[in-house]
Design a protein around this nucleic acid. Structure first.
Lengths: 255, 255
DNA sequence: ATGTCTTTGTGAACGCGTGCACAAAGATGG
DNA sequence: CCATCTTTGTGCACGCGTTCACAAAGACAT
């Protein structure tokens, strides 16, 4: 999972559990595919398989939205698409700004999945004056000086941060001060925001590290002890005898 | 959170809870920053603040790894960096292939966070023959025909999929058949893999939709009923009286 | 109209994750 | 060597999320 919500202790928003909200876009995507194939109805079992979840979980998720199914038949695809879209707030248009137009920012600007779901890239913003005016994905990049006016003129409430780590917090502060209340953060930093502002984080490096953990387990399930002995472990600092430079003695659990 | 693990029912890997594993990279990043500033020790309170988590949670997380702290003092930064790195499997080199060198794939290839953590981009692979040989991030792109041999020659066990949605499952199948057992998927699709293969998913569109949900709640906490009445809701299919085309009558809960 | 069959919606049990609160451990000063 | 102070490590309770299993509801055939 490349994401982690920034605290918010599972604030069950109006009775819909956070875990359910996180799955709704998944259902929506599967339903949209069915809709394009003109499939009229779908059972919880089929839809769950398409979304990669347990069917009981899916039914419970939908039960939080209301009773939208028909027993013995299933769910009306079009109707459900509309209900989920409305619940997620996708029936309205969300102007979004992307700050930091490097490789990743450019990739995001070109990403088609935004426009198709009610998200509109209102502006691309970068701190580099040389970038200003250059079109990326058909939109001219604007300089960060104009950040505040862009936010206010377009009524932007969602900001995407794709800057280097060091610039993320200052940019975040300016976005929030200008009126942004939801932030998607791609910079590898912990952002501090006031109450009432939502932050979601996408961290590519963390995802890989989690994969590496499981990979290591799979690979070294039998040869684990061997590698542990071979790797040079830093000596644990013992405050009483701490005078020489760090040695190469492998750390062993003291008795 | 831009990620969601693909089932694996919280498989507590060797006693370390999945939730803890997901936080270890966060601690590691904070610790690395401290290490660069030559800070010798850190308390759970300080480190927790830097990582953006509760200090009790942090201590419990570390307790799964062992007793690496000193009461009254805190944790030795260098020692802890090593222990977490080892636990995550970052003391060894992980060759990684990136498949699909579009905007996103190129951004990933250029992303510095990989190399700095023991991940090495072994190859860039794309299906477009016109891309073959073109250098991206200093690495020449190779054609998908060579996917299997690249995987095997380099002993790659982690693959990153940054292709369009339609190509993701076939690419995934080929990766798995060639020996890859961990996949980081950026394509907006549910991947089906055999047991023993880990899949993590990063979905930009889903993250934005979750933000939109909370944004909508914040914005329309008082004007909710109003917008619901204004939006044109598709009529619910009533199987008994289903003859005309869809009307515009707002759907209302039947008595 | 009645019976059968399918599929939903949900009550209930269970397990994981979180956070409190405190005892144990060690450092530090006199 | 003893007292005090800091900080870790963890037992415990609570709440969220998941899953099972089944009753209720409706479609459909006869």
């Amino acid at each position: 999972m490349a994401t982690g919500r920034t605290h918010r202790p599972a604030t069950r928003s109006r009775g819909i559990p956070e875990a359910t909200v996180a799955r709704l876009p998944l259902y929506l995507r599967a339903l949209t595919a069915l809709s394009e194939r003109s499939v009229p109805t779908v059972s919880s079992e089929e839809l769950a398989a398409a979304a990669g979840v347990n069917s009981a979980k899916l039914r419970k998720d939908f039960s939080y939205l209301g009773s939208y199914g028909t027993r013995g038949v299933g769910y009306d695809v079009e109707y459900l698409v509309y209900q989920i879209s409305r619940e997620l707030g996708l029936t309205q248009d969300w102007p979004v700004v992307i700050v930091g137009i490097g490789n990743l920012g450019a990739a995001l600007a070109n990403y088609g999945g935004f426009a198709s779901r009610g998200f509109r890239v209102a502006a691309l913003i970068d701190a580099d004056p040389a970038m200003a005016g250059k079109p990326v994905a058909g939109i001219p990049v604007q300089h960060s000086d104009e950040l505040e006016s862009i936010i206010q003129d377009n009524g932007v409430s969602i900001g995407v941060i794709a800057t280097p780590a060091g610039a993320a917090q200052p940019v975040c502060d300016r976005l929030v001060a200008a009126g942004v209340t939801s932030i998607l953060n791609f910079a590898p930093t912990v952002l501090t925001v006031p109450d009432g502002v939502d932050v979601r984080k996408v961290d590519l490096s963390i995802e890989l590290q989690i994969l590496a953990f499981h990979e290591q387990r799979k690979a070294g399930e039998e040869a684990a002890a061997q590698t542990a002995a071979a790797a040079p472990a830093p000596v644990r600092k013992d405050s009483a005898t701490d005078q020489g430079p760090d040695g190469d003695v492998p750390a062993v659990m003291p008795a």
